[in-house]
Design a protein around this nucleic acid. Structure first.
Lengths: 152, 152
DNA sequence: GAAGATTGACGGGTCAATCTTC
DNA sequence: GAAGATTGACCCGTCAATCTTC
């Protein structure tokens, strides 16, 4: 019987869309960016030299290279990210976090955290959160191993 | 500190996309439909008379009325769903599962269940699944209460 | 010729405006 | 005039083809 699995999947799906929608809404309203855009800035911020090669960035964001080109176009246009082609290998393109990108990320981050506290944080106690993190972590490991996707 | 919340959110997000992508891929390959399309057929199948008013269906699928019109257009074109305007109230439109829709759903369902067993089912034991379902269920309840969305 | 990024065509949805029926 | 569905304009991403550089 796969009934319990279906119910579990539905719960996971609902949590994801409810929280994701809220993140998108709050980020759009308070920081002027979408969720992927926040994630992109965050990945750059965490990377050495605040820069990442396009293909690596695409894998981290779990979108296609073509998709990343578009997202990056938007962020470049707003001045939050810059492109750079290294002299050594002119096939590659690096995305680099700009100063105003740092500022936007800072504002976005506080809203991002706040939404997580108001959603995931509000309805579960310390222990439950830990257990939930542990099990979903185990699940992610298993799934990543089965369906080998690059370093996330 | 919101660090644990961020990690939890990332896990939830990853599980959702890994499983969702797999569902979409398998359904497209084996049943010729997408995940929302499967869900639409499934909701109709579960409804009394295998029919639902457009607006109610949109809420269950968590998409906008405009979006549903498009999805429905595709399914009507394939002959899996029919539209009907009730004589009593000609403002409303009902989506109705057709015979070939039933057949497609049957094929889609087996693949759907199989993917869930191969992903969620494969990496957690009975107890873990139960605990995970319980906590995500609690979370969904809490979130639904906070952000009042219609009957799902 | 293969690696890497971008582009064009498109799929799939949102949003605001519109049309019909109550 | 409000309820309900649809349409037009558009946003965001995918996919396959293309262009450049190694």
């Amino acid at each position: 019987m796969t009934r319990p699995l279906i119910l579990l999947w539905r719960n996971l799906y609902l949590v994801n869309t409810l929280v994701g929608d809220e993140l998108n809404a709050r980020l759009a309203a308070e920081a002027g960016c979408s969720l992927v855009e926040h994630d992109l800035l965050a990945w750059l911020s965490a990377a050495p030299g605040q820069r990442l090669r396009m293909l690596d960035l695409a894998r981290r964001l779990r979108i296609t290279p073509g998709g990343l080109t578009r997202v990056t176009d938007r962020l470049v246009e707003r001045g939050w990210v810059e492109r750079e082609i290294p002299a050594g290998n002119r096939r590659e393109v690096y995305a680099i976090l700009s100063d105003s990108g740092v500022a936007v990320l800072k504002a976005a981050r506080s809203n991002y955290s706040r939404v997580l506290r108001e959603t995931l944080g509000r309805h579960l106690d310390e222990q439950e959160l830990e257990a939930l993190a542990a099990m979903t972590g185990k699940l992610v490991e298993g799934l990543a191993a089965t369906r080998p996707e690059p370093t996330g």
